[in-house]
Design a protein around this nucleic acid. Structure first.
Length: 295
DNA sequence: CATCTGATGTGCT
DNA sequence: GCACATCAGATGA
């Protein structure tokens, strides 16, 4: 097994403020400087080759909310022993591998969840992957020119939307892929801007519509890894918030079904209210979790 | 930093 | 027809 730098051993050649925020890529939110933490937060633990373990069927086979949190790294389902952060891997045609750590997800429960494509058990050609076995990839086009990638979970028609990744490997290729649709001569994207949105991550990792209905647990071009050497998340490091871009769906728009790594610079939309200490969404969340578990 | 607007075409009623 | 699980660029502070 190749040697791998532990997070604690990594040394940052940055200012104190930056290294504090960026070394772990989470921890405290930097409320201090509006200039913002800069983009050199490259993790050390996937510097070259993979040291992660490929996740199989058993990881994906958990209730939707549990999977959404487990993808970020929070253990909520007793049957799942993985409590580390997960990394999406894309093996390109030329053999180069792109990696990004999952830092933001949303749960779409199906059934009574009005915001879900599978609401009311509605099954169409487009959303069929949501009803397939846990771990099945659901890729759909949105606003004409973009794609979003989901992972089917346990539960009828339930799936988890991947909303943001921290780029770990293949920054150069990601930047090329992301730049393809941008104006010539426009400024270069910072690392943290490569995958900080559901359609951006599809561009950056070259996830095509053709990946729809593929099995993430058994595919040579795209899979998920966990890092067994990773330090488990502490209590409160995963923020629970409302989902993005579903305003028209009434009461379901307010449900706490979005999850992200607190203070991470790659999260697409921050929720300052939800990050305040003492914010309590856990009661409602528990109700939803039990519903999705009990089916 | 926050807010706003136009682009764009597929899936579904 | 119309809604849409979005994004980039522009503008104002």
């Amino acid at each position: 097994m190749p040697a791998r730098k532990r997070k604690s051993a990594s040394v940052e050649h940055k200012t104190d403020t930056q290294s504090t925020v960026l070394k772990r890529g989470r921890q405290s939110v930097d409320k201090s400087n509006g200039a913002d933490a800069e983009h050199n937060f490259k993790s050390q633990y996937f510097s070259c080759e993979s040291n992660g373990l490929k996740l199989g069927q058993e990881f994906f086979n958990q209730p939707c909310v549990c999977l959404a949190k487990a993808l970020i790294g929070k253990l909520t389902h007793i049957a799942i022993i993985v409590n580390t952060q997960q990394v999406l891997v894309r093996r390109c045609a030329n053999g180069e591998e792109l990696r990004g750590r999952v830092v933001e997800t949303e749960a779409y429960l199906g059934g009574e969840d009005k915001a879900s494509h599978s609401a009311g058990g509605k099954r169409t050609e487009r959303n069929l992957a949501m009803f397939m076995k846990p771990g099945t990839i659901y890729v759909y086009p949105i606003y004409g020119i973009y794609l979003c990638m989901n992972i089917s979970s346990q539960g009828e028609g339930a799936a988890v939307l991947l909303r943001a990744l921290e780029p770990l490997q293949g920054h150069t290729v990601m930047r090329q892929l992301r730049g393809a649709r941008r104006r010539e001569g426009s400024r270069s994207l910072k690392d943290k801007e490569l995958c900080n949105g559901p359609s951006k991550l599809c561009q950056a990792l070259d996830v095509p519509r053709a990946f729809d209905r593929r099995d993430l647990a058994d595919d040579a071009e795209v899979w998920l890894e966990t890092d067994p050497g990773e330090i488990p998340l502490q209590e409160g490091e995963v923020v629970t918030s409302t989902r993005i871009g579903i305003e028209s769906h009434g009461e379901w728009a307010a449900k706490p079904l979005r999850f992200y790594l607190r203070g991470h610079p790659c999260v697409s939309v921050l929720d300052k209210r939800a990050e305040e200490p003492g914010q309590q969404t856990s009661v409602e969340l528990t109700t939803i979790s039990e519903k999705s578990i009990s089916e």
